[in-house]
């Protein structure tokens, strides 16, 4: 049961990673990072249960927190440069 969920989340992470590599515009990459972060949260939660040590959920909280802060950080600094430097989409 856990293995199925863990495997599914792992595949989802892989796909999100491909989007992060290929993503034409920077926003696709930010979206991929956000999805990737949430999937890591799920993976660690499921793995914690699978390895029989469910009390590791503090780590999951930090993942979610850091994911949120880095997405906000990327947006703030990207928008900040967007004003100074014209936005050149690949």
């Amino acid at each position: 049961m856990y293995t199925a969920a863990a495997f599914a989340v792992l595949v989802a992470m892989l796909l999100a990673l491909f989007r992060a590599f290929a993503g034409p515009t920077l926003y696709d990459r930010i979206l991929a990072v956000n999805v990737f972060g949430t999937k890591t949260v799920l993976l660690i939660a499921v793995v914690g249960f699978m390895m029989g040590r469910p009390d590791f959920l503090d780590i999951v909280m930090v993942y979610a927190l850091m994911n949120f802060i880095s997405v906000i950080g990327i947006l703030r600094f990207f928008e900040y440069t967007a004003k100074n430097v014209e936005v050149r989409e690949e």
Partner: peptide
Amino acid sequence: LLVFGGFLCISGAVGLL
């Protein structure tokens, strides 16, 4: 719930791609 959640994850990721 777990299996369906997993399926949703994959569908979302495929949609993302």
